[in-house]
């Protein structure tokens, strides 16, 4: 066991995924509470053509440039969703499914073009961005995750109060001079930084889990926003550590899916055991009934 814990690869991957999942827990809380958790899923899928496109244009398979392409396509996807839901009767549900699948389709079409074209060498790694290949993470990948997460967290801290008020009461936040477009852009930036840098670790298809599950776990354990955030962040990091350990120790277990199953395990436990959970709910209700007003 000590072999695994001290191996360089393990440390690199564990640090990277833990930072990522911690930030994901915080960033995801915003969209989960706004009832827009699946936007992350659509953006996650939509990053795939961005990765392939930037490979085609720049010609190297280097994490930073690929992440840049991912961010650009993610932003286009986000605004397409906004435009469709705002200017037609199509619901968010429909718009998400449409954007998610058509952008991913574009990615596949581009991918088949790249693979069939001898001008592009070294396309092998591109597929890793669909499911993630944490085992191949380099220290440069981890630096990128750390820098992106630091920016995300910094933005979160600077605009903490605005974010809180905006989620709770958007109309009130406008009347006290908080700009709605600015807030949407801010939330998008915080989220997309996590998604774009997390692709190599977790992959485009599953990345949304580290945005939703920690947030839900946090909400199950606390009624206070800062505590929800911290519980979310730490359960994300714990799952990242566990998942990375399992995948390093076991054979043929991909890291991304292992992290997500660890997170799911924490979530299932929380659904039953947390103060609001199924097992303790009866007791909780009784308590509420007792000190009712009047």
């Amino acid at each position: 066991m000590m072999d695994v814990l001290t191996s360089f690869t393990f440390l690199i991957v564990a640090i990277g995924t833990m930072v990522l999942a911690f930030t994901g827990g915080l960033a995801g809380t915003i969209s989960v509470m706004k009832g827009q958790s699946l936007i992350g899923d659509a953006i996650g899928h939509a990053t795939f053509p961005g990765v392939v496109l930037s490979f085609m244009l720049i010609g190297i398979r280097e994490t930073f440039t690929l992440a840049l392409g991912a961010i650009i396509l993610g932003i286009i996807a986000f605004f397409s969703i906004q435009m469709i839901t705002k200017h037609s009767k199509v619901t968010l549900d429909g718009a998400l499914a449409l954007i998610l699948s058509s952008f991913f389709g574009l990615g596949m079409a581009l991918m088949s073009f790249v693979q069939g074209n001898p001008d592009y060498g070294g396309t092998q790694g591109l597929n890793d961005y669909i499911f993630g290949q944490a085992a191949y993470m380099l220290s440069s990948d981890v630096y990128l995750i750390i820098i992106a997460s630091a920016i995300s967290l910094l933005l979160f801290i600077i605009f903490y109060h605005q974010i809180r008020i905006y989620i709770f009461d958007p109309v009130f936040s406008r009347t006290i001079g908080i700009n709605e477009n600015f807030m949407n852009l801010l939330i998008l930036t915080i989220t997309i930084l996590v998604i774009a840098t997390g692709l190599k670790a977790v992959g485009a298809v599953l990345i949304v889990n580290i945005l939703i599950a920690p947030a839900v776990i946090g909400q199950l354990w606390s009624n206070r926003f800062p505590v929800v955030l911290l519980i979310g962040g730490f359960s994300g990091a714990t799952a990242a550590f566990t998942g990375t350990y399992i995948s390093t120790a076991g054979e043929n277990i991909a890291t991304g899916p292992a992290i997500i199953l660890s997170l799911s395990a924490i979530l299932v436990l929380s659904i039953f055991l947390s103060p609001k959970g199924i097992l303790r709910r009866g007791a909780h209700k009784g308590k509420l009934g007792e000190d009712q007003y009047d």
Partner: peptide
């Protein structure tokens, strides 16, 4: 153009 047909069809649908 020798591309993934399902992929292209999805994007055409968009």
């Amino acid at each position: 153009y020798d591309l993934s047909i399902a992929g292209v069809t999805s994007f055409v649908a968009f």
